[in-house]
């Protein structure tokens, strides 16, 4: 799959995918220090959403997204 170019689009797509089937989704962060790269991936083994960045300011956005996801995952609602 190709990488998303805009963070906003990516965040929206991730949330959509997660809501469609929370039981199947997983989120992967990969940080490669030598390349100064941060890769994010959200997949349910059918669709795969990826985002790649080299900028520090994206860490904050990522944290927000992760916090949201984590909160959803560790909640009592089964949806």
């Amino acid at each position: 799959m190709t990488y998303f170019t805009s963070w906003e689009e990516y965040a929206k797509a991730v949330e959509k995918l997660y809501v469609s089937d929370p039981n199947k989704c997983r989120f992967v962060t990969k940080y490669i220090h030598s390349k100064g790269q941060l890769c994010l991936k959200m997949t349910d083994d059918v669709v795969c959403l990826q985002y790649r960045t080299e900028h520090t300011q994206d860490i904050k956005k990522m944290e927000k997204l992760i916090s949201q996801l984590m909160r959803h995952m560790a909640s009592k609602e089964s949806k």
Binding site: Y31, I32, H33, S34, K35, G36, Q37, L38, T53, E54, H55, T56, Q57, D58, I59, M62, E63, I66, S67, M70, R71, A74, S75, K76
Partner: peptide
């Protein structure tokens, strides 16, 4: 495995870890 009651605590620690260690990225 994170339970609901630990989410906040974990997030705080985790975000600190990310901020502190992902320093190979380009600055603004």
């Amino acid at each position: 495995v994170i339970a609901q009651k630990d989410v906040n605590k974990f997030q705080l620690a985790y975000c600190n870890l990310l901020k502190g260690n992902m320093d190979g990225l380009k600055k603004k």
